[in-house]
Write a protein that binds this DNA or RNA. Sequence first.
DNA 1: AATATTAATTGTAATATTGCGATGTAGATT
DNA 2: AATCTACATCGCAATATTACAATTAATATT
Lengths: 111, 111
Amino acid sequence: MGVTKTDLFTTEQNELAKVAKALAHPARIAIIQHLLKANACINSDLVQELGLAQATISQHLRELKEIGIIQGTIEGVSVSYCINPIKWKEIEGHFVTLFGQLSIISGGSCC
Amino acid sequence: MGVTKTDLFTTEQNELAKVAKALAHPARIAIIQHLLKANACINSDLVQELGLAQATISQHLRELKEIGIIQGTIEGVSVSYCINPIKWKEIEGHFVTLFGQLSIISGGSCC
DNA sequence: AATATTAATTGTAATATTGCGATGTAGATT
DNA sequence: AATCTACATCGCAATATTACAATTAATATT
């Protein structure tokens, strides 16, 4: 079938999975890391930086934009991309919540 | 083509992407959350809990086991799964490192 | 030994992702 | 207005993922 049964899960579970999916490609991690370093950049910078075709970079940027973790504004002839700090912190919060839930009361591995 | 060009990226980028991919499905998020709550459970528990077929749960468990975030030990006739706290903390660290890198020096959005 | 029980594996169909060339679009430049 | 520049979108081929029925494997139970 190949189609995820989203109706079986909570909105939060589906949301977190969607965010994880957006981060589930090394090119998109690399794009984010470049944006963290450079603060902002344009498509062609990333083509140079990553060595993928322009169309491919554009596609990855769209996926990151779709979950709101980055945003793009038209800057004359080009589009300047940067991280959306509000969404960034929001997503960070989701991960912190998930990872903070491990209680190592018993100490060490459980099985 | 459908094949990721891993050679263009660093080991860290590929590794983080792989971890994100393992979390990139609501069923796997749900499995992890159930393990956080219940401490340990078996395949059939999750079939009941999530409403997916046994084979499907088994497949998701394998993916989580492959990145080491969970582990399974044979418990008589069944297999008891639980979170691997060492790997859990390690992965948490990767995300903390990534999300901690946003410097909001300028304050607010950049573009 | 025969039969349950539990879960991994296999095979298959439907769908999604990755990557890129080609094309389209919109704001600059001459 | 014609051209250039930067990027998005389309269309395609290759590969990956999702889900499940059927089968297999291994341990318990009778």
